[in-house]
Design a protein around this nucleic acid. Structure first.
Length: 382
DNA sequence: GGCATTTGACCTCC
DNA sequence: GGAGGTCAAATGCC
């Protein structure tokens, strides 16, 4: 009548071990294809179709692996559950992650490095899937299908970039008298982001930057208050970036986020990060890889295609793990969302956390991996 | 102790 | 004068 507890555990263990094998196999396959792609890059550089095909295969492998990672969580199949996906799956995840981490420890190869290097390219783009509409842009935020999960997707802002404000415009540095400006404080850009469905839905979706809330205001005619955020590094780097977050009256599950000014904290050579750090899943990473290769030629101020493709432009760095969220966050001098600001050295295997457990509310999963690379490239680009 | 959040007060703009 | 935006003290968390 009653199945023994140990029997159940055994069954689950066997099942999960099989699953781990499949996942590992998938990831290995993806890595293999990536390696092949890399070795053939000189030939394929002029053959976008073949490049695209290879990338598709890599995407498929990693995507399937990711699917299986979350296969026991039905909500994981709904792209709108991007935030659910990123929550640590207490019951199922640890063992699989441990296995993956072990695998990563043992077999971390150039391919992984390649992935992050390609990710690096992708990261140069802003963190949203924005469908431009004049000055407004609508963020897909995982509401679309397929691989779209709301963090880094096709970015099509073109030359309509936000312009950073002067420090004076942001009110920074006005010590004697309180300077408050509203007029002419730069271009605004509004995006709509889906709220997390599970967990604290009051928390606005991550966008890859670290923000500090400095105010909240009831807005006339709105059911929900508007929250005001500024870049965490405003003081340190005079970063003028700000954003306002407000829930839509008619759709509380959607946040309207208005960005004002651009981040300058990643442009300073002393700044902690040169990119908008993003928590990306393996699928996102590979998706980005494909997009980077197929649709994103190197930036004009970037390296030549051949060099870019050779992926010798960067090197991997070690990083840190947020003590609060478990997320990988700004390594070295990188920005951190951890409140204490304390960061812990972490081994390469923590990339597994960044890739497969990049859930939580923190935002800087890839930052520690990429910050120095950006910095070096940024310097080269100058 | 340092950093983030909360919140009432203050400032600017319309 | 009202609404929106920001400041800064108080408070809490790590």
């Amino acid at each position: 009548m009653f199945r023994s507890k140990t029997s159940q555990t055994k069954q689950r263990t066997t099942s999960s071990e099989t699953m781990e094998g499949q996942i590992e196999s998938l990831i290995r396959h993806g890595c293999k294809v990536a390696r092949e792609l890399e070795s053939n890059l000189p030939k394929l550089a002029d053959n976008p179709n073949m490049l695209s095909k290879s990338c598709d295969e890599i995407i498929k492998a990693f995507g399937t692996a990711k699917e299986r990672l979350y296969t026991q969580d039905p909500t994981a199949h709904d792209p709108r559950h991007m935030y659910v996906l990123r929550e640590p799956q207490e019951s199922q995840q640890p063992k699989i992650e441990a296995s993956l981490q072990g695998w990563l420890r043992s077999s971390y190869t150039q391919t992984m490095d390649d992935m992050f290097q390609m990710q690096l390219q992708a990261e140069r783009r802003p963190p949203f899937d924005m469908q431009e509409s004049g000055s407004n842009a609508v963020l897909a935020a995982g509401l679309g299908g397929g691989e779209v999960e709301g963090s880094a997707r096709s970015w099509s802002m073109g030359g309509d970039q936000l312009r950073p404000l002067d420090a004076s415009d942001s009110g920074i540095g006005s010590s004697s008298q309180r300077q408050r400006r509203r007029k002419d404080d730069g271009e605004r850009r509004t995006v709509k982001m889906a709220a997390p469905r599970i967990g604290n839905t009051e928390i606005p979706p991550e966008d890859g930057y670290t923000w500090r809330k400095y105010g909240q205001k009831e807005i006339l005619g709105s059911r929900f208050p508007r929250s005001y955020y500024r870049c965490t590094h405003q003081k340190l780097y005079q970063c003028p970036a700000k954003k306002q977050v407000q829930r839509l009256d008619d759709d509380p599950s959607t946040f309207e986020v208005t960005y004002r000014a651009d981040h300058t904290c990643h442009m300073s050579s002393t700044a902690p990060s040169l990119i908008p750090p993003l928590p990306l899943t393996a699928t996102e990473i590979t998706h980005e890889m494909a997009q980077t290769i197929t649709t994103q030629p190197p930036q004009s101020n970037s390296v030549p295609l051949s060099k870019w493709l050779s992926m010798e432009h960067f090197s991997l760095r070690t990083g840190a793990v947020s003590s609060t969220s478990g997320m990988v966050v700004g390594g070295g001098a990188g920005p951190s969302t951890s409140r204490s600001g304390k960061e812990v050295e972490c081994p390469v295997a923590d990339m597994a956390d960044a890739m497969f457990n990049s859930g939580s509310s923190s935002s800087n999963s890839m930052d520690w991996l990429l910050g120095d690379k950006w910095e070096s490239e940024d310097k080269e680009g100058k």
